[in-house]
């Protein structure tokens, strides 16, 4: 018995070490970029192997502070995320509720009408032409309306409401003389806060992270979301820094800006992540119950 226990302990230690190595692998890129962003770009370029900041300086953030398109992008992304998510939640919760009511005439047909679009998607060009023909090309609407409802979020909301709000409540409200709207606003909505949190986070992170619709629908740089500005800086290497920056050399300043913007865009997410991750997991679980 003692030897089995010892072997168990040994096994636990081995897999713990493996999992710690995996965790390091998941986090290392972020730790590295964080440290590099507080280092002197001269030192990073000379030897990119580091874990802690080398020759600590805030020079990079001083450049970013004056980099106006980053901040325009930041503000725009906050706008798209807040307004977009508000639209998403309004559309999704109202429709999901209506689709749980058995007395809804044509319920199956409407569900079929929505499910069908999960399998038949017209694709990039017809979607682009539609946005153009609606006259919302190069406006903020182009990032809000085409993604107003996701079928997956609609269906997880519907299954949540079906499971968590008993029909008896509806019957009781009816006896009390409450109409559908009263019931929806004063009974269903207050009982749906946790599913609203789940889908709000899915929709919200989708808005914050998306860049492709902005790329094809927007021309005006003042409307660009942060991710599109990041694409210019990180992928296309189009970084606008003044030659008279604190770092002297332009190519070093460009390198530094890249580390700094990654930190700035990932930081809000990493800060709120520990508090909200359980909602994401819950969403996946609800989704898998009724795939």
């Amino acid at each position: 018995m003692a030897s089995i226990n010892k072997r168990n302990d040994f096994f636990q230690i081995i897999i713990k070490i493996i999992f710690i190595l995996l965790a390091v692998m998941f986090l290392f890129p972020f730790v590295y970029v964080f440290s590099a962003s507080f280092s002197s770009p001269v030192a990073v370029a000379a030897n990119p192997i580091l874990i802690f900041p080398k020759e600590f300086t805030l020079a990079i953030y001083k450049i970013i502070f004056k980099y106006s398109s980053i901040w325009t992008g930041y503000v725009n992304s906050i706008f798209y995320t807040l307004v977009g998510t508000l639209i998403n939640i309004t559309f999704t919760i109202t429709a999901a509720y209506a689709l749980t009511r058995p007395e809804l005439i044509g319920r199956r047909a409407i569900i079929f009408f929505i499910v069908l679009t999960m399998f038949i998607n017209a694709g990039m060009i017809p979607n682009y032409l539609l946005v153009r023909d609606l006259g919302i090309l190069n406006t903020r609407w182009a990032l809000l309306l085409p993604v107003a409802v996701s079928q997956w979020n609609l269906f997880i909301t519907r299954s949540y409401l079906e499971i968590n709000i008993p029909n008896d409540l509806h019957d009781a409200a009816e006896v009390d003389g409450a109409g559908e709207f009263r019931y929806f606003f004063s009974v269903v909505l207050p009982l749906s806060t946790s599913i609203i949190a789940v889908i709000g986070l899915f929709y919200g992170s989708g808005h914050w992270n998306s860049f492709f619709n902005a790329l094809i629908y927007l021309k005006d740089r003042n409307l660009y979301p942060l991710q599109l500005v990041l694409r210019e800086i990180l992928i296309q290497n189009r970084v606008q820094v003044e030659t008279s920056s604190d770092l002297g050399d332009t190519s070093l300043a460009k390198l530094g800006v890249k580390y700094g913007v990654i930190v700035l865009s990932v930081a809000p997410l990493l800060i709120i992540f520990p508090f909200v991750q359980k909602y994401f997991v819950r969403g996946v679980m609800i989704g898998s119950l009724k795939g």
Binding site: F26, N209, L230, L234, I235, F273
Partner: peptide
């Protein structure tokens, strides 16, 4: 282990 999933594609590619 969930963290990388929530990072945008632009940042991952960056």
């Amino acid at each position: 282990s969930y963290v990388p999933h929530f990072i945008s594609t632009v940042i991952i590619c960056g």
